[in-house]
Amino acid sequence: MNLIETVLIRPAEVITLPNEIQHHDHDHHQLVIALNGNSEFSIEGMQNIIIPGQGCVVTASSDHAFNGLGFAEILTLNLPTESQLDNYTAQHIQPLIHSNQYFKLDTQFQILLQLLVKEMRQAPDDILVAEACKNTIIALLQRHIKTDLSKKNRINIEVIDNFIIQHITTKISVAQLAGCVFLGESQFHLLFKQQMGMTPHQYIMQVRMNLAKQLLEDRSLTLAMIASASGFANQSSFTHTFTKFQGTSPSRYR
């Protein structure tokens, strides 16, 4: 990296990702943390969807692609290579950038992150603030992340449930659920079916049906309103699916 590149690269910045897939590499390490919305990353072929509270490490010269799934904001921390660091700083950074990986932040760190990002938003052109925020994150991050989650044999269903409920009114893909627990789509599908006795799509539909049955108890809600709140495109689709799964129409169930 030459001097001009060093000057131009900000230590930390909040970026809104494009929906179109971008593809590049760079000669510095980078930490990426999702702030708002969902984004898709592929690092040397290792693909995941990251949601707020999750992130990834992109090591220097690693080929990677990324895009936002709708509106998506990320925080990027641009880190120099080991040869450009003093020994003390290198000791903090080295455990983080030894390989490309995805990680999850604990709740305590997410609260701190929100405060740091707020400071950066209030002073977007202040390099000193950006540097201070980056250094704070680097100093504390190693104690507050969980990595290599894909090696676990069981899926955290609570995480899956939370994602489904938060996005119940939209179309939910298996890839999105797999990204929540840092698994590839095919591996997630296999483990999920082994653990739950049904496919992810069947599970999503079960959650939608359970919500719909709860909403049907409120007679002030129309079937069209319930269909929308449960994530169906229209009342006709809702009625057809509900009847198929429950053996009776929504009107008769009510």
Rank of each mutant, 00 (worst) to 15 (best):
E5N: 12
E5D: 13
T6M: 10
L8G: 09
E13F: 02
T16V: 08
L17P: 07
P18M: 02
N19G: 14
E20W: 03
I21K: 14
I21Y: 00
H23E: 15
H23D: 15
D25M: 11
H28R: 11
A34P: 00
G37Q: 04
S39Y: 00
S39D: 06
G45V: 07
G45F: 06
M46P: 00
I51N: 12
P52D: 07
P52K: 03
Q54M: 14
Q54E: 11
Q54C: 01
C56G: 06
V58W: 02
V58M: 00
V58K: 00
H64G: 04
H64A: 04
A65P: 00
F66L: 02
F66M: 01
F66A: 01
L69I: 12
L69S: 00
G70V: 04
F71E: 14
F71A: 09
A72E: 00
L75N: 09
L75T: 04
L77V: 07
D86V: 09
N87E: 15
Y88L: 10
T89G: 00
Q91V: 03
H92K: 15
H92G: 10
I93M: 04
Q94V: 09
P95N: 11
P95D: 13
I97P: 05
I97A: 11
H98I: 03
S99Q: 14
Q101S: 15
Q101E: 11
F103D: 11
D106E: 09
T107R: 04
F109G: 07
L116Q: 08
P124H: 12
D125V: 01
L128F: 10
V129Y: 07
C133Q: 05
K134H: 02
I137K: 05
I137L: 08
I137N: 06
A139E: 10
L140V: 01
L140W: 07
Q142G: 08
T147H: 05
L149T: 02
L149W: 01
K151W: 09
K151Q: 13
R154D: 13
I157Y: 07
V159Q: 13
N162C: 03
F163N: 05
F163Q: 02
I165R: 13
Q166S: 15
H167I: 04
T170E: 15
T170V: 03
T170F: 07
K171S: 13
A175E: 12
A175G: 02
Q176S: 12
A178E: 09
V181T: 13
V181P: 06
F182G: 11
L183Q: 15
E185S: 11
F192H: 04
G197C: 06
M198C: 14
T199S: 15
I204M: 12
Q206R: 13
R208Y: 05
M209L: 14
N210Y: 01
K213W: 02
Q214D: 08
L216V: 10
D218C: 02
D218A: 09
L223V: 02
M225E: 15
S228G: 01
A229Y: 11
G231L: 08
A233Y: 10
N234K: 07
N234T: 02
S236K: 14
S237F: 01
S237T: 07
H240V: 11
F242A: 10
K244N: 12
S251A: 11
Y253Q: 07
Y253I: 03
